Amino acid sequence: MTTIQDIADKLGISKGTVSKALNDAPDISETLQKQILETAVELGYTKLRRYKKTAKRLCVIAQKDNIEYLEPHHFAYDIVMGFRQMSEPAGFEVDVVPVDVELQRETSFDVFMLQNDYAGAFVLGFSLGEPWMKDFQATRTPTVLYDNHIIGNPATAYVGIDNDEGMYLAVGYLKKQGHQKIGYLSSALGSHIMQVRHRAFFQAMHRHGLKADSSYSGCSYYLSECMEKHLPRFLDMGMTAVICCQDTFASAAITQCQQLGYQVPRDISIIGFDDIPICPYTSPPLTTVRQDRTELGKSGYYALSSLMNGVSIGTVLLHADLIVRGSTAAPRQ
């Protein structure tokens, strides 16, 4: 196990200087402290400053540009709440830490965790291009990622719902209603979960014996472009149903169809993904694949606790659930 002396020897400085840097002494410059922390991480130093504190500390890290969590109607609010419901009774302090790309570029993930004395992290809202996504590949800190999968690092785990199951349920329900031509609208495939759902759509269509080629999918970075370019194309192709990557896309699709003179679900059925709080209140109410976000938060703690106890859990997927509401019906004959 790496010691303070090992860090001192590596940098050619005194053991006392290393100790001061690890304990936030005011007479150590920020530059030197950063160098010492980075070296500590490089050498695998894990004996943090917990002897000074009675509470064990965890953090929920939220990419603030991608995911909202502060209010009850925000998508990740229940995820954070579920995590805290499990972790705080177990004796952990939990900090919810908003981060952006700038912070990730300034400080590596492991240095951030060491600086703040966090024993583990639950990570929300990260796209594939985030700087810390590379750090997660080599981190030794127990880290659970929601809707992201790090391959080959036993210190990390992936928590989410079974999107293959969810898409299979959605396509199967539409087929049972009589739909044959089903399209898929998605945001750009710049995140792991968007790639998973895109692939799951085509797999589900194939498993249900329905035709689907690349023209059955429309992906755009901007929601407006998806609605103005791909949705009219689907309607021109004679699609009778559309599955959307997220409920926000599905809600926008309902509005766009109505503006184009189509009635939902009489002329076209629409299914979303996630079951965000607005779904029962769209017009018509939105059929969607539900994620139980409180249970996802609890599963995040379960996976993190396992990692911290030396059990290298890889993936925890909750069952998906199709919630049928008024935006779907049998196609017109």
Rank of each mutant, 00 (worst) to 15 (best):
D147N: 14
Q177N: 03
G183S: 11
N163W: 04
V123Q: 01
A155I: 00
V123L: 11
Y146I: 00
I161A: 02
M113L: 12
N148F: 13
V196I: 14
G129I: 08
G183K: 03
I150M: 06
A170H: 04
G190P: 06
L174E: 05
Q180V: 07
L169W: 02
G129V: 06
I151F: 09
L169R: 12
D162M: 07
H198K: 07
W132R: 04
G178A: 07
Y173P: 00
Y118G: 03
F136D: 05
Y168T: 13
N153Y: 00
F136A: 01
A155H: 15
L174I: 02
Q137G: 06
M194F: 15
G129E: 15
G120F: 01
G120K: 07
G183F: 10
G178E: 06
L145K: 02
L124C: 05
L185N: 05
G120I: 12
G190M: 11
L114S: 02
H192D: 13
D162H: 04
D162L: 12
Q177T: 03
S127M: 13
A138Y: 11
L124P: 09
P131N: 06
K176S: 12
L189M: 12
A138N: 13
L124V: 05
I151R: 08
V123I: 15
V111G: 01
S186Q: 03
E165Q: 15
K176A: 12
S187T: 14
L169A: 09
T156L: 06
V111H: 03
V144T: 09
D147A: 10
A157K: 02
V171I: 12
M167H: 01
Y146L: 15
M133Y: 00
R140M: 11
D117I: 04
N153R: 06
K176H: 04
R197S: 06
H179Y: 11
T156G: 05
A121D: 02
D147E: 14
A138D: 13
D117K: 00
H192I: 07
H149T: 04
A155E: 08
Q180S: 14
E165K: 11
P142F: 05
G125K: 02
H192Y: 15
T139A: 03
V196F: 10
A170V: 08
G166M: 11
G178P: 04
H198M: 06
K176E: 14
I182V: 09
F112D: 02
K181M: 09
A170G: 04
Q137I: 04
